[in-house]
C-alpha cells in the first residue's frame, strides 16, 4: 500500500492491519481507557466522595415550606435577615437557593454526618462550598440529599456558581463548622473569611 496524504482518495483495498508502533500505542491507550473507566465504580466502593445522594422530585414551594419548618425548629440567630440554624448531629438539614440568597445559614459539627438537602425555589443555582471546593448543581423541582461529613472546623461560604440573574454575584451563604468541643477554629476555615455581617 503506497503512502499518500489525507486529500488523496485511496485506491484498491486499503483495509490493512496497523503497523507495529500504531498497534502498541492503541493497546496501551485502550488499557489506560479501562483504568479511567474502572476508577469511577472503584471510588463508589472505596472512595469517600461520590455525587450519588438521595434524589427525588419535589414541588419547589413544598421544599421551601419544609426548609422553613426546619428553620423554625432549630434557629439560633440571624445575620442580615438570613436565619442561622444549628441542627442536631445526624439530622436531615436543608438549604434552598433562591434569587439571590442561600437560605438558611448553617452551624454544623465537625466529623458529624448530616444529610444535606439542596434545592432551588426559582431557577438553577450552584452550590459551591468555599474553601473546601465542593460543587453541586441545584435544580428547581429536584431534592438532592447528600450525606456530608465536615472534616475541618471553620467558617465556610456557599458561593452560587450557576448564573441566576442580575444579583447572582451577591448570592453568598454560610456554613460554620464547630469543632467537637463547640468552638470555631479561625485558622482552619480558610483565609480571610469575615464572620457575620459586614
Amino acid at each position: 500500500m503506497s503512502l499518500h496524504s489525507g486529500v488523496v482518495p485511496p485506491q484498491g483495498v486499503w483495509w490493512k492491519p496497523a503497523g507495529r508502533q500504531e498497534r502498541l500505542w492503541i493497546q496501551i491507550a485502550f488499557a489506560w481507557c479501562m483504568v479511567l473507566f474502572a476508577m469511577m465504580p472503584l471510588w463508589h466502593l472505596k472512595g469517600g466522595q461520590n455525587p450519588s445522594g438521595i434524589r427525588a422530585k419535589v414541588v419547589p414551594t413544598e421544599f421551601y415550606e419544609r426548609t422553613r419548618e426546619f428553620v423554625a425548629e432549630y434557629q439560633v440567630g440571624e445575620v442580615d435577615g438570613i436565619p442561622v440554624v444549628k441542627p442536631p448531629p445526624g439530622a436531615d438539614i436543608y438549604m434552598i437557593g433562591k434569587m439571590w440568597e442561600w437560605y438558611p445559614a448553617l452551624i454544623l459539627e465537625e466529623d458529624t454526618t448530616y444529610t444535606l438537602h439542596l434545592s432551588a425555589l426559582d431557577v438553577n443555582h450552584g452550590f459551591s462550598l468555599y474553601p473546601a471546593n465542593v460543587n453541586f448543581q441545584v435544580v428547581p423541582g429536584y431534592d438532592y440529599g447528600l450525606e456530608i461529613t465536615p472534616n475541618q472546623p471553620g467558617e465556610y461560604r456557599v458561593v452560587c456558581n450557576e448564573f441566576c440573574g442580575i444579583g447572582h454575584h451577591v448570592m453568598l451563604g454560610s456554613i460554620t463548622v464547630e469543632s467537637k468541643g463547640g468552638a470555631v477554629s479561625e485558622s482552619t476555615g480558610g483565609p480571610n473569611i469575615t464572620t457575620g455581617a459586614r
Binding site: 479511567l36 476508577m39 471510588w43 455525587p51 460543587n135 448543581q137 456558581n161
Partner: peptide, 12 residues
C-alpha cells in the same frame, strides 16, 4: 469529566 472529580471542578 470523571464523575467524582467533577465535584471539585463543576462550574468553577
Amino acid at each position: 469529566g470523571t464523575e467524582q472529580i467533577n465535584i471539585i471542578s463543576h462550574n468553577t
